[in-house]
Design a protein around this nucleic acid. Structure first.
Lengths: 233, 233
DNA sequence: CAGTGGTCTAGACCACGAT
DNA sequence: TCGTGGTCTAGACCACTGA
């Protein structure tokens, strides 16, 4: 064999993608094993392994020990959204960022919304409502509660100068989280903040973060009308 | 050194995450270089490299040659959505899938919507409107055009038995794509299909796929009310 | 049991980027 | 220029899984 010599994993990945694309290897088919490809490309097996493993991570290949590597029948495309600071998101667009605390003082009470099994009846949570502006225009309303059982230091924050979004990210490490996107109608309280008709459709993101099974915080982000979350496949 | 011996990359990753989490290594700080960690854990540098590289891919670390590896100041969380067949999405929920072509025969005409720079004025496109049902209830409306300049064989399809979503994925390879999520009001034509009030908010996904700079297809997916797209962080 | 991918090692050289 | 991460190699052993 030894048709073409490729000795870097990106090159091999490109070649494999090309063969899938031009149907040399069809969906569902098993492709040659690592050693065979290593021989063909004149490189080591580890290099082939990295190329194929990366493609498997992307859902383009399916790999099983003993069986081999197959081209995925229904390739899964991953849409990856990078979740960062709201301030960063706005600044990255070249716009100026402003922050306003809406509820003048965070209130402490039992939880009322977003009931989560790990929040007990006695858990005390802080509620905060805040507005993030882009170029002095409403961008997103942040509706949040923080579990003070996990983050007691949050009690001493007024969140007047910086958002809980920012404070938490810098000061409270989390292990994992849940996120969901949806469309909603008439969040009456927020429509005036966002300066739009309350019958308009809003794009909403809900996020809950955990520290080893304990809920840290839950946030509802209600975006301005026409907000679009974009990514590539 | 050689405190604890860890000789697999997942173990090292876990240990690194723990040190970031308990603030042994604080946000913005530079952590020891690969060789030092390899010595401490009693493993080879390649193993450390894989652990750190993977964490850098996740946005938890930032790495630069000559500079070293730092704990990201604003850790970026990736929300990954796996985009698959609509049929698969419904079946994976344990529900029965049904498909209905709405416009009895796909029409061929110049493009009218979703103008894309790569679609020329003379491009002929096929328009299709279809409904995907979950347990006999409307789930999502598929509003699509296909560029026949790139996919001439689409002309011969009636899309009565299977959706363009399925046919394209199986028969037309693509190289990359764009996707965006948004919330919209009153898609009057679709509200009756989805059997809901036309003033309700809808969750919408728009997707465009390419084959090396040529547009293959564009689709607007309008979901039933209360649809939520979920993922983990 | 045997075949295939998963990973580790030690050593080597390359590539980027700060100085 | 030179330090640090990026990657490659050859060989080895392990882990899963089908037969």
């Amino acid at each position: 064999m030894t048709r073409k010599s490729i000795n870097n994993w990106v090159g091999i990945q490109t070649e494999v993608l090309e063969r899938i694309h031009n149907r040399t290897w069809k969906p569902g088919e098993t492709i040659p094993k690592e050693i065979e490809l290593a021989n063909e490309f004149g490189c080591s097996r580890v290099t082939v392994n990295r190329a194929l493993r990366t493609l498997a991570d992307r859902g383009i290949l399916e790999r099983k020990r003993k069986i081999g590597t197959r081209v995925a029948l229904y390739p899964i495309s991953n849409a990856i959204f990078k979740i960062s600071l709201i301030r960063k998101e706005i600044e990255n667009q070249g716009n100026t960022y402003n922050y306003k605390l809406i509820k003048p003082y965070p209130t402490i009470s039992k939880h009322q919304r977003g009931v989560h099994p790990n929040i007990t009846e006695n858990s005390h949570v802080i509620f905060i409502k805040a507005l993030h502006e882009s170029n002095r225009k409403p961008f997103v309303v942040e509706d949040r509660w923080i579990n003070t059982a996990v983050v007691p230091s949050a009690i001493h924050q007024t969140f007047e100068q910086f958002s809980p979004n920012e404070w938490l990210l810098e000061n409270v490490p989390y292990t994992h989280g849940e996120i969901s996107f949806s469309a909603i109608n008439c969040p009456i309280e927020n429509s005036s903040l966002l300066n739009i008709d309350s019958r308009d459709a809003f794009f909403q993101i809900e996020r809950t973060t955990f520290d080893k099974e304990q809920v840290i915080t839950n946030v509802l982000l209600t975006y301005h009308k026409d907000y679009r979350l974009q990514s590539t496949l």
